[in-house]
Design a protein around this nucleic acid. Structure first.
Length: 516
RNA sequence: GCGGAAGUAGCUCAAUUGGUAGAGCUUUAGCCUUCCAAGCUAAAGGUUGCGGGUUCGAGCCCCGUCUUCCGCUCCA
C-alpha cells in the first residue's frame, strides 16, 4: 500500500523549484544570460495552469455575478494617476544603512526623529521654567530664553535644509544633515553610515522620443488604478447600478528592494483584482461579504482548510479603513495570498481632486450624488500558482518506488487527459489517435506511445494530468477503454463513446464553479 | 543592501594533494513488451554561471561579477 512521504519546509520548496523547471512549468527569465533577478518565465504546462487559474477567477467574478463586469486597462497610465493614488510619495523612500549594525533606516525618519528629540528638549526647558515662575508666559519664554532660542533656531535650520534637499532630490545633502546632526544608529550607536539611496518602487520609462522629466511614465505598480480611472466609463456604458464591481487581471510591476522566494515576490507579476463600489456606510457589510466569498472560492479548490487563514492588518495603509489578508501555508510559512481591503473613497476622491472631473454616482433611491466607497479583493496570480503547486506536490511510496504526483484540481490541470495505446501494435495507436482527435476540443490532451505504460502514467502524474485513457486488447473487442485516476491510481472501464463526456465533465471549470 | 551557503549535462550529484570532466535518472531512435518509472542496443547532452589572476597545468587556489536559497531589512 502507499505511504505518504512527508515533505515540508525548505526541502519541499527546493523540490518544487526544480520540479517546476524539469516539468516545463517555470524557468528563470533569460537563463542563458544567467537569468534576471526575480523574473521568471512560464513554460508549456505552467502557461496552461496559469491560464486555467485566471479563467477560474474571471468566470467566478464576471459570470456568476450580474453586477460585476471585467475590463482590461493598459499598463501605461497618465503620470498624474500615481500622484493621485499616493504611489509617487509613498513609493519613494530615501534609505540609509548603518555599516556596523547592518540595520537599514529611512533617512527622512531618522532626521524627523532627531527634530522630535530637539523639540522634547525645548519642552523640558519650558516645563522647568513653568515650575519656577508664577504667571508663566510660554510664548514670551520661547521668544526670549537664549537656550530655547538656540535649539529652535537649530530645528529651523535643519528643517529648511531637509526640505530643500528632499525637493531637489539631493541625497548627499540628506546624508550630510545626518552627519552634521551627529545622528547615531539606535542599535550600534555609531555614525558609520552608507550613502543615502533612493528606492523608487515604480519602474519608470519615457514615452515619446524626447527623454525629459515631463515624459516620464510608470509601469503600473497595481492594476487597481486602471479600474478607478474607468469607474464612470464602466458605470455609464455598461449600465451598472451600485453596488457593482469591476474585475481585471493583468501585469503589475514593482522594483522591490529584495525580491525573493521563487515566484512569490517577483518584480513583474500578475494581479487579479476586483473593485466593488458601494454606498458609503455599507462598506463594512460588503467587506465581510467578500471576505467570506473569497475564502470560499479558495476552499473550493479542494485543498485542506487548515492551509488558509485570515490575518487582519493592524497597521492600515493610507487608503484603508479595514484590511485583511487571506494567508496560505506556503513551504516557507503562512504568507499573503489575497488581500481584501476597504479602501473608502480615497482613490475616487483623489482622482476627482487631481483630474478636476466629478467621479460620483447618482443614487436614484437617495436622490443624491456621492463618491462610492470601495471594497477591493486582490489576488496574486503567481502566488496562487505557487500555492497550488505546493499544496499539490506529493511524493508517495508505491512498491518501494517514489511516485511524484501533482495532485491539483482537475479543472485547473494543464493537461486534461493523456491517451495511451497499451502497446504500439495491433491497431491500438490508430484508435488512440482517433480518440485524441475527438478529445482535443476539451483542452490540452497528450498522446503518448513511448515506453511502458507504467512509465507513461508516472510522467502524467508529475505534471498533474488527472486522467489517463488506455487503449488495450479489450478495446479491440468491445470498444471500451480504461480510465486511470491520478490520485488513486484506480481504473474504471468505459465505452469509447462515453469518454468525451466523462473527461469534459470532470475537468471543466464550469463544473468547478457550480460547486461554489 | 548586509551576512551565510551554493552554482559541474534537462534533474540529482561525483571528480584523491591542483594533473585526461564522470555516474544515475531523464531525453531521442530502435528492439522486446498486454497496466503502474521493467529489460536490451545505440545516440544526444559541458568553454565546470561569467570575466580576470596565480600556475608547466585550475572544476578545485585568489579577485571581481551574475544568479539562487537562508537570515536580517523592505513589502504602500
Amino acid at each position: 500500500m502507499s505511504q505518504n512521504h512527508i515533505l515540508q519546509g525548505e526541502d519541499l520548496f527546493k523540490k518544487i523549484i526544480s520540479h517546476s523547471k524539469e516539468y516545463a512549468f517555470i524557468y528563470p527569465s533569460s537563463e542563458i544570460y544567467d537569468g534576471l533577478s526575480a523574473v521568471y518565465d512560464y513554460g508549456a504546462y505552467g502557461a496552461e495552469l496559469k491560464n486555467n487559474i485566471r479563467a477560474y477567477w474571471w468566470q467566478a467574478m464576471t459570470y456568476l455575478h450580474q453586477n460585476i463586469v471585467g475590463i482590461d486597462a493598459a499598463i501605461f497610465m497618465h503620470p498624474t494617476t500615481w500622484k493621485a493614488s499616493g504611489h509617487v510619495d509613498a513609493f519613494n523612500d530615501p534609505l540609509i544603512d548603518n555599516k556596523d549594525s547592518k540595520k537599514r533606516y529611512r533617512a527622512d525618519v531618522l532626521i524627523e526623529e532627531y527634530i522630535a528629540k530637539l523639540q522634547d528638549k525645548i519642552q523640558k526647558e519650558i516645563d522647568k521654567a513653568r515650575k519656577r515662575f508664577e504667571n508663566f508666559d510660554e510664548q514670551l519664554f520661547r521668544n526670549t530664553n537664549p537656550r530655547v532660542k538656540e535649539i529652535q533656531e537649530k530645528i529651523h535650520q535643519i528643517e529648511s535644509r531637509f526640505k530643500k534637499a528632499l525637493e531637489d532630490n539631493h541625497l548627499d545633502e540628506i546624508k550630510q544633515i545626518i552627519l552634521d546632526c551627529e545622528i547615531v544608529c539606535p542599535v550600534s550607536g555609531t555614525k558609520n553610515w552608507t550613502d543615502v539611496r533612493q528606492f523608487n518602487l515604480m519602474f519608470a520609462t519615457q514615452m515619446g522620443s524626447v527623454s525629459d522629466e515631463a515624459n516620464t511614465i510608470y509601469l503600473r505598480p497595481e492594476t487597481a488604478q486602471g479600474i478607478f480611472v474607468n469607474f464612470l466609463n464602466v458605470q455609464k456604458t455598461a449600465r451598472m447600478k451600485i453596488p457593482f464591481g469591476i474585475a481585471q487581471t493583468g501585469k503589475a510591476f514593482r522594483n522591490e528592494i529584495v525580491a525573493r522566494q521563487f515566484i512569490f515576490r517577483m518584480r513583474e507579476f500578475e494581479q487579479m483584482e476586483m473593485q466593488f463600489f458601494v454606498k458609503p456606510g455599507t462598506e463594512m457589510e460588503w467587506y465581510e461579504y467578500w471576505k467570506e466569498a473569497r475564502l470560499k472560492w479558495h476552499l473550493n479548490l479542494g485543498f485542506t482548510p487548515d492551509k488558509y487563514r485570515f490575518k487582519d492588518h493592524t497597521k492600515l495603509a493610507h487608503y484603508a479603513n479595514a484590511a485583511c489578508d487571506i494567508e496560505f501555508q506556503f513551504p516557507f510559512g503562512f504568507k499573503e495570498l489575497e488581500g481584501i481591503h476597504s479602501r473608502t473613497d480615497f482613490d475616487l476622491s483623489n482622482h476627482e481632486k487631481y483630474s478636476g472631473k466629478k467621479l460620483q454616482y447618482f443614487d436614484v433611491e437617495e436622490n443624491k450624488s456621492y463618491v462610492p466607497y470601495v471594497v477591493e479583493t486582490s489576488v496574486g496570480l503567481d502566488r496562487l500558482f505557487l500555492a497550488i503547486l505546493s499544496a499539490g506536490y506529493k511524493e508517495e511510496m508505491v512498491e518501494n518506488e517514489i511516485r511524484t504526483v501533482l495532485s491539483i484540481p482537475p479543472a485547473l490541470a494543464p493537461v486534461k487527459a493523456a491517451v495511451l495505446p497499451l502497446v504500439k501494435k495491433d491497431g491500438m495507436p490508430e484508435i488512440a489517435e482517433k480518440l485524441w482527435n475527438e478529445l482535443k476540443y476539451i483542452g490540452k490532451i497528450i498522446y503518448d506511445d513511448k515506453d511502458s505504460v507504467g512509465r507513461r502514467y508516472r510522467r502524467q502524474d508529475a505534471i498533474g494530468t488527472p486522467y489517463c485513457i488506455t487503449i488495450d486488447n479489450q478495446t479491440l473487442q468491445d470498444e471500451t477503454v480504461t480510465i486511470r485516476h491520478r490520485d488513486t491510481m484506480e481504473q474504471i472501464r468505459l465505452p469509447l463513446n462515453k469518454v468525451y463526456n466523462y473527461i469534459e465533465q470532470n475537468t471543466s471549470i464550469t463544473e468547478l464553479l457550480k460547486k461554489l
